[in-house]
Amino acid sequence: MRESRLWFLFVLAGACMIVLLGAHLFVMHLETFMGYLGITIHEPLAYAEVMARAKSVSWLVIYMALLILALYHGLYGVRSVLLETINMKHHSTVTAVIVIVGLIAAVFGSYIVIQSYMMGGL
């Protein structure tokens, strides 16, 4: 694939993450601030809360989307850094390593998300 297509996907993933990851960060870390905005968040890291989020379909979709977008965006960025430092004549080896790492992380992450969704449903 032409590099421009890969790069455009990278930028699209980044743009989506500004919204999605922004929401995720604010919910998980800025409880007090969100309280002022009228959104009360209680102990976002308590086990009951975590599993309650896990069983909701909308959080499932958000988590899966975040996982895929973040892995693609992040690993494309790592590939850029590697290509600029390793100086190979062809990019295929670097790209292959990055794709393998990405696939492992994606499979592992989606297993966790789906497994906890099913557990929460019980």
Binding site: V50, A54, I112, S116
Partner: peptide, 9 residues
């Protein structure tokens, strides 16, 4: 983060 949050299951 992926590894740490996997402990939930």
């Amino acid at each position: 983060h992926l590894i740490l949050t996997s402990f939930r299951i």
